[in-house]
Design a protein around this nucleic acid. Structure first.
Lengths: 347, 347
DNA sequence: CCGATCTGCTGAAACGTTGAAGCATCTGAG
DNA sequence: CTCAGATGCTTCAACGTTTCAGCAGATCGG
């Protein structure tokens, strides 16, 4: 256990004078260079432990031409980012992997909507981080293209159809939305369904809507559907539910593009004296907690955000090691989580 | 808009050759040194924009002897940290302030329970970050003492009674717990109350328990209370509720030390055919979302975690600027949030 | 018109690290 | 005994930045 004077920052030079060899010998001893004798190595290691030597990361990064950190870049404001449990789970996964590789993690968000470049500039071009994981919701964020174009080590989380050459990690949200839609149609026999989508400049919103429509079309049954767009917030879900409940007679079910909007819809349904699921069945997407807490629980699709984070980090490390990620686009499985909000248990 | 060849990393030297002055002149021009002429400054700035120059953070940090990053250190595993909404809100606040100062944020957690030092070593002693915000739940984390002893720029989030000289930011949780307890006793006339505490090696758990007892003692009414300790998880809250419901006859209310345990207690109460609040009133603590989502909503105390994060960051920046924080210990106000779980609305 | 002062730049050093190249000293083969 | 090679270290340079000291040339007071 190191205990001695740890005030000043101990450098290689301090170790060198302490042991009585040159600075380089110390450096080589610590990296176990074959041309350094065992006794010297032992002496150096002992001194390092005694003085509490920790290599200066700036010196190391400068010399190596790359830092020992990776960054999680989310080109949105912090409030938006960390308010959403998705990013939290992502963060858990990324830190797990980064910790395993003893790599520091920088988190970079935008100060506000106008500074699109900031999150990216700050960490990557200044080489504060040697690579980045980018989680951008917007379908056409020019900064993402820029990073990819600059051939920087980047892993995208989500689906970026227009960037086929960039490494990415995601789930098949079209299939996920289709699965939950099929559950409504085929397991519960519901055919008059509304979809509350997210903002349609989000890939996620587009994909979930597409999955919904595709499943209806493929169902072989005459289904009626309607759409109202929200912004993924509970309040917008409630407003959208108001709209579809007013406009579509004999509505049987609502599939919201995320659980928060589904929760908003549930509040609106209830406020009209209707019951979930007896009068209106309900389904959401994400499974980050909201859907488990409500009564009844909301049927949803589990997004493996933590696994996505882990995988994104490991793909990034592969890139940094100069290994081509295989596959370039990882698609992790989703899981349909059936709860009470869409009707009696059909198995 | 910079557009030219941004492949290679542009250094001061590149700018220097491009403009036709020395490296130092470029550096001085960019920092608006008075001894550089306006025309030169304009030329340098133009070249910097054209080539897309971004200062290398390692070079800068090495020269300056300190980095431009701050760290949020949470000596726990990532899973534990980011699973808890408290840290999320804290993170929002910290990033807001860090972004405002154009400072990168490193997030450091422990790889596992055994590596107590890791989160701290990685960022601070290697000088990857110039200062740290430490959010440690454990009452006697030796690493916190170590950091404070090492006189590193550190701001603690929470109450660290044994470290009076370290800057800290927190709320008065004793008063918060007392407020919600008073609400149960005085506004609702409940006198047979159980407390479900957190693990009593957490300062937070200790303080909330103390606030509870203090408020009962100060109420001037004959109150009966009992205690069961949980670990802040929903499941442990349910188990603790089982225990107090079995052991205390005529129990009227349960005050859980956080909302998740309160939610667990609610599930247990309901499973016994009892109603909240008619048969058993319920209160929690934190207000990070759970308490708002349940039906009925859970009366709780709002912890201003985001504000804590913001304030912690600004205090840290003060420390880094060499300014003594005033006050050394910031105490932000909490807020009692009355919902339906403790009875009819008394105003 | 000469010394002092100002202006605008250059050169060099330093931060801590790493690693290539170099230099003794020792060993062992011939 | 000699010299090739191994062994164990040292010296030096470089990464990109900032800044201090210094150096020309211009400006100005007397």
């Amino acid at each position: 256990m190191p205990d001695a004077a740890k005030r000043a920052n101990v450098t290689l030079r301090d170790l060198a004078t302490s042991v009585g060899v040159s600075q380089s010998a110390v450096s080589m001893a610590l990296s176990d260079h074959p041309r350094i004798s065992e006794p010297t190595k032992r002496a150096v290691r002992a001194a390092a432990a005694r003085l509490g030597y920790v290599p200066n990361s700036a010196g190391r990064a400068l010399r190596a031409g790359r830092s020992t950190s990776i960054a999680l870049v989310v080109p949105q404001t912090g409030r938006h980012v960390f308010g959403h449990p998705y990013f939290m789970h992502l963060l858990v996964g990324v830190t797990e992997e980064a910790n395993a590789r003893d790599t520091a993690l920088m988190v970079s968000t935008n100060p506000d909507e106008t500074h699109g470049m900031a999150a990216y500039e700050r960490v990557l071009r200044s080489q504060a981080a040697s690579g980045a994981i980018v989680a951008s919701a917007s379908i056409s964020d020019p900064n993402v293209n820029r990073m990819v174009d600059a051939a920087l080590p980047v892993v995208l989380v989500g689906r970026f159809a227009h960037l086929p050459h960039a490494a990415s990690v995601g789930t098949d949200e079209i299939a996920g939305a289709a699965a939950v839609t099929r559950h409504l149609v085929q397991d519960h026999g519901l055919t008059r369904i509304a979809h509350i989508s997210g903002p349609l400049d989000h890939q996620t919103a587009v994909d979930r809507y597409e999955g919904f429509r595709g499943a209806l079309a493929a169902s072989g049954r005459p289904c009626t559907h309607t759409l109202a767009a929200g912004d993924f917030s509970e309040e917008s879900g409630r407003a959208a539910a108001r709209q579809v409940l007013d406009s579509m007679a004999d509505l049987q079910a609502i599939f919201a593009a995320n659980d928060e909007m589904a929760h908003g819809a549930m509040l609106e349904i209830r406020s009209r004296g209707l019951r979930v699921p007896e009068d209106i069945a309900l389904a959401g997407y994400d499974d980050f907690g909201v859907s488990r807490l409500t009564t009844p629980g909301i049927t949803t699709v589990h997004v493996p955000a933590q696994a996505l984070g882990r995988r994104a980090a490991s793909v990034l490390f592969a890139l940094l090691d100069g290994v081509a990620p295989d596959p370039l686009h990882t698609v992790l499985p989703f899981e349909l989580v059936v709860r009470e909000s869409c009707g009696s248990h059909h198995g």
